[in-house]
Design a protein around this nucleic acid. Structure first.
Length: 222
DNA sequence: TGCCAGGCCGGGT
DNA sequence: ACCCGGCATGGC
């Protein structure tokens, strides 16, 4: 993995941003989900999907005692798909969950704690190897399930940065991730809360329709 | 009613 | 390297 020089944007201070948002929202409580396994499952199920739908699917999995790598590995694929149906894309997501648990089985005999017990970059690469796990999902699992210092970038984050002129239209995922990681202290709670708070801001003030974030009463940047 | 949600993959150009 | 269609349910 090649390391790049931390890229700082002149008018962009992630730490100040995180303080502003924490003062406004308080602790985010993200990620909902008690165990690392549940968090990882949720990260896959929530791909391009409203969280309320994911909750229904998760309830079905809990009722079936399937929040567990080895049990998921053993369950029939069609039954799994039926259980996660409320989350949408249920056939492809069933496959993606299977791909994920398969990787954990092969790497650590299904021991998620051992799977996560490696350095940040190695874990990230291993997750990205799994078909169905892209950058955001990998980083969500890394940050919220494994507690690694990776900043999660999503559609809201991108839109907020774009509309405030912090990035250009063609900015890559890893560029945006670098902007945050270069300016944040190495504290996992800061990483977790800031991403969560950006989603909250996005939902409230930076929806796809409204062309600008000018309605946002918070001074996020200045 | 139509649009959107905490993406990602695969095939075509 | 880009661009695009497909995947699917539930809520407003």
């Amino acid at each position: 993995m090649k390391r790049t020089e931390p890229e700082r944007h002149p008018g962009f201070d992630p730490l100040r941003l995180s303080r502003t948002l924490f003062d406004h929202y308080g602790p985010s409580g993200w990620w909902p989900g008690d165990s690392p396994c549940e968090v990882a499952i949720g990260a896959i199920l929530t791909q391009n999907t409203a969280w309320t739908n994911v909750e229904k699917a998760m309830a079905n999995l809990k009722a079936a005692s399937l929040i567990d790598v080895r049990r998921l590995h053993g369950v029939d694929g069609e039954r799994l798909a039926a259980l996660i149906r409320p989350a949408g894309y249920y056939n492809i997501k069933a496959r993606r969950l299977k791909n994920f648990v398969q990787a954990v089985m092969e790497a650590s005999s299904g021991d998620l704690g051992r799977f996560f017990d490696t350095d940040t970059q190695t874990l990230r690469s291993a997750l990205l190897m799994v078909n169905g796990i892209g950058r955001e999902t990998a980083d969500s699992i890394g940050c919220y399930a494994a507690g690694k210092l990776v900043f999660v970038v999503d559609a809201y984050t991108r839109r907020i940065l774009l509309r405030h002129g912090v990035i250009k239209d063609d900015a890559s995922y890893d560029h945006m991730r670098g902007l945050f990681e270069a300016g944040l202290p190495p504290e996992i709670s800061v990483y977790k809360d800031l991403h969560a708070h950006l989603v909250l801001v996005g939902k409230e003030f930076c929806r796809p329709k409204s062309p600008r974030c000018c309605e946002c009463p918070l001074r996020l940047f200045s």
